[in-house]
Design a protein around this nucleic acid. Structure first.
Lengths: 246, 246
DNA sequence: CGACCCTTTGAAAGGAATCAACTTATGTGG
DNA sequence: CCACATAAGTTGATTCCTTTCAAAGGGTCG
């Protein structure tokens, strides 16, 4: 068995596990997914691999690493719109919205599996059930955006940071990427500022508050949560918005 | 012909016109839509008719008026996540995300047409094409949320307000609800503040800047745009994010 | 060791929120 | 038709939070 098809199977497994978490897949669904050809690519850190204005002909399944979706103002400031972790398909929307209105780029070293739109659309044509699941996937993304609008507009800097950490914990945990109380987290404070609409200085000071309150430790690419209850309390964090295990 | 079926036809027309703007409908698509039974309801101003936590069994098509989607913080502050105008289906997502994570309420007097999920799902089962169009509809919503995340995080108060006015103009214009340079707009300054994450005082002062620069007039429920070019310039407004006429 | 990247710190400036009137419209009932 | 109530818009003064600017500290890797 060639290395390529090994990786194909890896990608299929990841996708199946992800979709399975939303709804049970039928044998036919699985069969359809295993007919997909993936093109697995390693991407170095800090690299935009999808650009604003691009017309996409394929989607990417994130197998390993963290990627961000971002946009820039005229003056060159970056706003990160979403953070994606393994199992996510950050540009699933490009199936029906070909023209990209944002960038997608790696934070850490990433492994990404590309599937041609044609193949995805063929599979979806044959399975209304898979269509519903993937549609739902994009709706959950949208629910996340809505939650971010509220978070960034209504919470103070420390609450905002706490909320982001809660969100990251839940999502990493849902795909089995946590151990004990923590998880590997490759973003810098500056990047988190670009997620939350805060300056790096504010992120730093808010983090110091959470740290001195013994709620969270964030050190050398790793976040550990010391007191989930109180962290979620400060963040006004309601995990249901993630629509994880309905 | 009874009043009810008159209104049914009105609702069908609005929905067909809206979907037609996204992609040409086949005769079969139209036929399917005309098989939908709508329940047309008049809703008084300032009334939430969908609540957080509700489990929806129907979607609503907005026929007339303005509705908002909003959420509250623990301390009771409201954040408006989106503003909807006639032709929109604000809770289309509830087809696949039954549990509402936000409120939907009227701003002005509204007319809303409810369709049972069952009926929508039956239609979608019979038409992959309509499925794709409605999916795309929800993806455009998501693109709007992303744009709002950037706007609210990166633009100053006056730019933000200008951006919002540009967005509203484009959307009202796309459904034929503008005349000359303006459109009827029933929100208060306080509500606009809840959209933009600004206090009412900031909205007021930003509006005064736009007014004294002779870019916009907003008076007694009506917005008129005096200088679109410069307004869009200030707002850093790029209409492509609305994915209106691709 | 030194270069680089990231984090941390302090001080000052700025923008928006808040607070507290006051004004202007709109609408109601006597 | 006017007195009054109510909702929305406007204004000024003050406070507070976050940004900005500038520089120092710390870890990592060649």
């Amino acid at each position: 068995m060639s290395a390529v098809s090994d990786r194909d199977e890896d990608a299929q497994d990841i996708l199946i596990r992800r979709l399975q978490a939303i709804d049970n897949l039928t044998a036919q669904d699985r069969h359809l997914i295993s007919s997909l050809r993936f093109d697995v690519v390693d991407i170095p850190p800090r690299t935009d691999f999808v650009r604003e204005g691009d017309r996409q002909t394929k989607c990417c399944l994130l197998m390993d690493g963290v990627v961000i979706r971002s946009n820039f103002t005229r003056s060159g400031e970056r706003q990160i719109q979403s953070v994606h972790i393994p199992g996510d398909v950050p540009d699933l929307q490009s199936l029906h919205l070909r023209r990209m209105d944002h960038y997608i780029g790696s934070v850490s070293q990433c492994r990404v599996a590309f599937v041609a739109h044609d193949q995805m659309l063929r599979v979806l044509r044959d399975s209304p059930h898979l269509t519903a699941i993937l549609w739902r996937e994009t709706l959950i993304d949208a629910a996340l955006y809505r939650a971010i609008i509220v978070r960034n507009a209504r919470l103070g800097s420390t609450e905002r940071l706490a909320h982001f950490i809660c969100e990251m914990w839940c999502r990493f945990d849902a795909v089995g990427l946590t151990d004990r109380n923590g998880f590997a987290f490759p973003m810098t404070q500056e990047m988190v500022g670009q997620v939350l609409g805060l300056s790096i200085v504010s992120v730093n000071r808010s983090m110091q508050i959470l740290r001195s309150d013994r709620l969270v430790v964030w050190d050398r690419g790793r976040i550990d949560i010391l007191d989930w209850t109180q962290l979620a309390e400060i963040a006004q964090f309601d995990p249901t918005f993630l629509h994880l295990n309905e």
